[in-house]
């Protein structure tokens, strides 16, 4: 099986500060991975580098064994869903937020039906009348689930999650765990939540931009 993501001796600097130093790891489809470490250890930088948001100083990032270049970056960006602590929905209403990506050329013509919208909301235990709500008036946890719903509607298979369970209550967290238990979905996450760590099968420990430890345990 070919790796889905491969970091090969990746070093990244920004404003003369080392963000990542000689990071190497490989992820395969279906892997559930978590990056751990203190604040500033480079966890979020791994996600940003994978998305082409940090220029590489040395080494190479591969997505589906294709080197990350200006010409190929659109490929990973359209295949991966990035969900941060306080996701930006980029629209006024929840419905507009869910349909936003379908305005872009790459997804045009694949707009979900009303039934598909409701189905994905139900899967994430969100009421269907949330569609009418203003994005500014919904909670952080709801925003995270709407961002996740958007990824599911786009049929994304790779999820880059930055502290995604931080604003969720126990029930919502369980819903998110259930979604990511799908063996087809690959997850590269940043988290401190012990429950989340337990459910991931690979834990990368980072310190000052270096990968110091890799732990593998059973499947979630």
């Amino acid at each position: 099986m070919l790796p889905i993501i491969r970091f090969d001796q990746v070093s990244v600097t920004a404003h003369d500060k080392t963000l990542l130093a000689h990071i190497s790891f490989t992820l395969f489809a279906g892997d559930k991975t978590v990056l751990c470490g203190k604040s500033g250890s480079g966890k979020s930088s791994v996600l940003r580098t994978l998305l082409g948001l940090h220029p590489l100083k040395s080494g190479m990032v591969y997505f589906q064994e294709t080197p990350l270049t200006p010409a190929s970056v659109q490929n990973i960006r359209s295949c991966a869903a990035y969900i941060g602590q306080e996701p930006i929905l980029g629209a006024d209403s929840v419905r507009e937020a869910l349909l936003l990506p379908f305005q872009f050329k790459i997804h045009r013509g694949h707009q979900p039906t009303e039934d598909q919208l409701i189905e994905v909301l139900q899967r994430l235990q969100l009421p269907k009348d949330i569609l009418k709500q203003n994005c500014k008036r919904i909670s952080g946890g709801e925003k995270q689930r709407i961002a996740l719903a958007r990824g599911l509607l786009l049929g994304k298979k790779l999820y880059l999650l930055d502290e995604v369970t931080s604003a969720l209550d126990a029930d919502s967290k369980q819903v998110v765990f259930d979604v990511f238990s799908d063996p087809q979905l690959t997850v590269l996450s940043v988290a401190h939540d012990p429950e989340w760590l337990e459910r991931c099968d690979i834990v990368f420990e980072l310190e000052a931009g270096r990968l110091t430890e890799v732990r593998r345990h059973g499947n979630p």
Binding site: L51, L53, Q74, R77, S78, A80, A81, Y82, P87, I88, G90, L100, P101, F104, K105, I106, H107, R150, L154
Partner: peptide
Amino acid sequence: YTTFLMLGAT
């Protein structure tokens, strides 16, 4: 802006 890029925008 970055979110738009991640959602597939050019």
